[in-house]
Amino acid sequence: MSKFKKKQGNTTPGISTASLPDIVFMLLFFFMVVTKMRDTELMVKVNTPQASELTKLEKKTLVNFIFIGRPTDKFKAKFGTKPQIQLGDKYASVDDIPLFLAKHKASVPEGQRQSIISSLKIDNDVTMGIVGDLKTSLRKAGQLKINYSAKKRERTK
């Protein structure tokens, strides 16, 4: 009986939770760094080709993205299977490029506008016709720095 009583009096103190905030913060920071926000839903299938001579895109604010690919299953019924250009969150034609570029340009501070890069995320499977039209349109709009998005592979021997 006395044994039982003693146990009750000496209950174990709870695990110290002092370091819990640190752990949680660390996890938070980790996910903040790793997570890449996708601000637009992809409406085209984009599987970029592989290349070896890659350049990293440094400043995200100076980059605008243009996607070309075939519509995803969700949009197939409405838009068919022909390759489409996606600007922002909707399908567009090459004629919409100048306005799209101008809008992005307006959001960039004046001094940095000459280093704006267009990142072209184009599907493997697309033919050069639509890509050529896009290139012409970019040149007409004065957007000359472009980056063909690609996956890393080793150089061929």
Partner: peptide, 16 residues
């Protein structure tokens, strides 16, 4: 973790 990076072939188009 491999962080998905934006990489690609950098090209400079000629002036129109």
């Amino acid at each position: 973790t491999t962080i998905a990076e934006d990489k690609g072939v950098l090209v400079k188009l000629p002036q129109w």
